[in-house]
């Protein structure tokens, strides 16, 4: 497999890998690292790629595993993820209103979700995978995925409504 062929197979889902990594690792840099790492691994195994019938699902699984490993090692080392894309909290009122905007609030809620639900909601609601594809990546049966997805969506709704009722907390 030539480099051009490889890029041709890989590039369509490179951003998906990145977004999944970003969802789990939060930091831009870490997500870029993870994407790069996974693609390098794929590249080094390029002779075997043809044997996989679904390279995308395989790469997604690799990304998921890589990120979970990363998170585990971070937790074990008692380190917090360091990321540079912090939002500046002390800005003008205008900015603050913007920051408190519900869209970014949803984003914050998503970060509170457990990893499994984060992955599923990312794959379903952002990447619009169907259940079989998700099942390949997370290695769960479709019913369990449906339950987890429903739970995650309801959690987001519940938090949103809470915020709606109490206003800015």
């Amino acid at each position: 497999m030539k480099q051009a062929d490889f890029l041709h197979t890989v590039l369509p889902f490179k951003d998906k890998l990145y977004r999944l990594a970003k969802r789990l690792l939060v930091s831009n840099e870490e997500a870029e690292d993870a994407t790069q790492e996974v693609l390098m691994k794929l590249w080094s195994k390029k002779s075997k790629i043809e044997a996989y019938n679904n390279v995308e699902a395989f790469a997604m699984t690799m990304t998921k595993n890589y990120c979970l490993d990363k998170l585990k090692s971070k937790q074990a080392g008692n380190l917090k993820l360091v990321h540079s894309n912090y939002k500046d909290e002390n800005t003008s009122l205008q900015k603050e209103v913007e920051l408190r905007d519900s869209v970014s609030f949803v984003h914050e809620i998503m970060e509170e979700l457990p990893e499994q639900q984060k992955i599923i909601i990312q794959l379903r609601d952002v990447e619009q995978y169907d259940f079989e594809e998700i099942a390949k990546v997370v290695d769960m049966n479709p019913t369990a995925i449906r339950v987890a997805l429903s739970r995650a969506r309801k959690y987001i709704r519940q938090e949103l409504i809470k915020k709606h009722n109490y206003g800015v907390s």
Binding site: Q36, S104, V106, V126, L160
Partner: peptide, 23 residues
């Protein structure tokens, strides 16, 4: 009240990786 949720998903889908992978 559901709008931000879907808006957020749409935004998240727009994120792209900017780094080129040195192959």
């Amino acid at each position: 009240e559901y709008q931000p949720m879907f808006q957020c998903f749409t935004n998240l889908k727009a994120e792209t990786s900017t780094r080129n992978v040195p192959l």
